[in-house]
Design a protein around this nucleic acid. Sequence first.
DNA 1: TATATTAATCGTAAATTTACGATAATCAAT
DNA 2: ATTGATTATCGTAAATTTACGATTAATATA
Lengths: 111, 111
Amino acid sequence: MAITKAKLFEPNQKRTAELMKALGHPARIAIIELLAERNTCICGDITDELPLAQSTVSQHLKALKTAGIIKGEIDGVRVCYCLDEKGIKEIEELFSPLVQNLTTAIKNNCC
Amino acid sequence: MAITKAKLFEPNQKRTAELMKALGHPARIAIIELLAERNTCICGDITDELPLAQSTVSQHLKALKTAGIIKGEIDGVRVCYCLDEKGIKEIEELFSPLVQNLTTAIKNNCC
DNA sequence: TATATTAATCGTAAATTTACGATAATCAAT
DNA sequence: ATTGATTATCGTAAATTTACGATTAATATA
């Protein structure tokens, strides 16, 4: 039982995991791809594009919103969803170095 | 209730989500960073580096292994863990375009 | 004003995740 | 052969996730 063992997880690790987790469902991947595809906000015909009930899609939207990846703006009866610039920037800033790190590490792998 | 609604999730979306989900926990982020950091395989003193019980760490290792991100090789009493080249390649090939896609999409965002 | 539309929330069920201690299995060393 | 070390698995509890239908709240339209 070497070293400290008390090393709690670092903020970066926790935030990275949080973002990954938010993207850890095909429906939520589909949603952000949809939002990226149409360069205008789409007002919840997202439901029509997914093989899921309206309430379920709403839940997934909430998950993405809570993670800071998308944001929704009320527009009359409808709600306008789009990618949240700040969250996407965070994804870029956290994921890219990680992937890079892993990719270079692989090259010096012993097995 | 417009359009089709029958569009099941695409394989890429499912696989991306699967990988994201596997990385959706700070302990598992910590583990892969640890494996990347030491450019040699490490024989499971991973437990000592994490604030978690041995059985819990073993579970997380299993999750990463099942997702194809790491692999473990038995070496006597110990088990040698390292990043799985194929999985890392997949991460690179799936995550990078997605992040790129989101990043460029943000620029034409309406909100 | 009454009705229809949109989307969130509630209630709920089933499945999965996370965590732990205890145990088992495997190998190394004595 | 016995003992010790390492790691997976089992059993289990608590929490979270995923999904749905039903309901509610808010707004637009007839």
